[in-house]
Design a binder for these strands. Structure first.
Lengths: 240, 240
DNA sequence: GTCTTTTTGTACCATTTGGTTAATTTGGTC
DNA sequence: GACCAAATTAACCAAATGGTACAAAAAGAC
């Protein structure tokens, strides 16, 4: 990770306050690193304070660069937010790549996907908060991003494939709706992170200890997979 | 609902712009109605735009009264927000009163409670959005309100009672945790409203037609109640 | 009625905040 | 090494915004 280029030397010449010869410190160009620096810190600030609550000056202060550069590269606050949102999606997406479900029996693939989603959401609270903020703003920016739509389309495709295999070999109900499944998995996994503050404030932190979280997750996955199997004990495939 | 008291007559005297004798229109005092007017519109504005995004001037413009009165009654923006949050909780709470679960078998009571929660959340999007905003702000204000804590304690008590009865007559598993049940019911019901914007933007509105919502709800309630029953088909109580 | 307290409207202010102007340096090219 | 576009810094600005000062009008006490 290349440093965002700053302060190579505090300027050897005298300060010289006069308008002539302001004698600024030397610096190196590094547009990519500067933009990444800005985006990373923008995500933090937006996730912390929301779109309206975030301050451009605060983002600038977090970075190694200046406010002017934010406007130089991203136009305005909303432009920065839109790019930060996409960056957050992309970042989270990277973490999903390792998951390989194709070789697993459908029911197990479903269980593994749900389990992974729960853990992954939990590990990326800033991303969750960005999505919360988007929802407060009626998904104005998510809707405008082709990239984000493509990313989520892939998630549905994954589930569609699982459903197809499950229906084919009879391990899962044939009338499952991939979108509804996605909705259910997301609901648990998302809520667990998004509403942790109010839930903790009202009922204490008991549900959020590592052990309880695992128990909660496993209960939910079991419940979900059970519901996705054939109605009664018709079959038995997929039982580990 | 008493009108918030305003403009009973547009002032009979001449306008008279001079500093002397401004000659304002007559008005009647109605502190309660004015405060309610402010709170209702504050909830709308905060729910629409978030705590930082909401503008005190915009709230004032929504009311029949003036910005000055907001500060007179609520001190500052945060004070108004805190009161609006409490008012939103209280308002939603009122809608929960009719629910009478004590005379139902435990499993049915659980089903009815879950079903009701789903519908009730769906019918109160502004309340959900206030809670979302609170979560963005780390539940700072929820945590500070005894009233809100009390309200939610009651929700847990309700579930505790159901669990007790269910364990006693064997219709529900004995190891159920009321708080976890509350978490599960809330997760579905809350997410369904809170994340509707992004979900719609990404996957279309199919999941949010009235019919699909009912189907979604019933699936979830069935799933949840099924998981809360005794492990296998041990018993059979509660089957309608 | 008169005096005090509460409630309301108008105009205003200080600060914050998103955004900009203009100068300066870098790094490459001819 | 002169020249130029892209990158960067520093200082600045106008508008928006939370909050107030002040005076006037109704209500309430006596």
């Amino acid at each position: 990770m290349p440093e965002p280029a700053k302060h190579p030397a505090p300027d050897t010449g005298k300060p010289d306050k006069k308008k002539r010869a302001p004698r600024r410190p030397r610096w190196k160009q590094n547009p990519d690193a500067v933009q990444r620096d800005i985006l990373i810190n923008a995500i933090s600030e937006f996730a912390d304070r929301g779109l309206s609550g975030a301050r451009v000056d605060a983002i600038a202060a977090r970075t190694q660069t200046s406010k002017r550069m934010i406007y130089y590269y991203f136009g305005d606050k909303n432009g920065l937010y839109a790019r930060a949102l996409e960056a957050a999606y992309a970042e989270v997406r990277k973490g999903e790549e390792g998951l390989n479900l194709d070789h697993l029996p459908a029911a197990e693939a479903l269980a593994k996907l749900a389990e992974f989603t729960f853990d992954h959401h939990r590990a990326n609270p800033d991303f969750i908060r960005m999505v919360m903020i988007e929802n407060i703003h009626n998904a104005e920016f998510v809707g405008a991003s082709d990239m984000i739509r493509a990313l989520n389309g892939a998630a549905i495709d994954q589930l569609t494939e699982i459903c197809r295999r499950g229906a084919q070999d009879g391990s899962l109900r044939a009338d499952l709706d991939p979108m509804q499944l996605h909705w259910q998995i997301s609901a648990f996994s998302f809520f667990n992170v998004s509403n942790r503050p109010t839930f903790s404030a009202l009922f204490g932190a008991a549900l959020f200890t590592p052990e309880t979280q695992v128990a909660l997750r496993d209960d939910l996955v079991r419940m979900l997979v059970e519901a996705a199997r054939r109605p009664a004990g018709t079959d038995g495939t997929g039982g580990k």
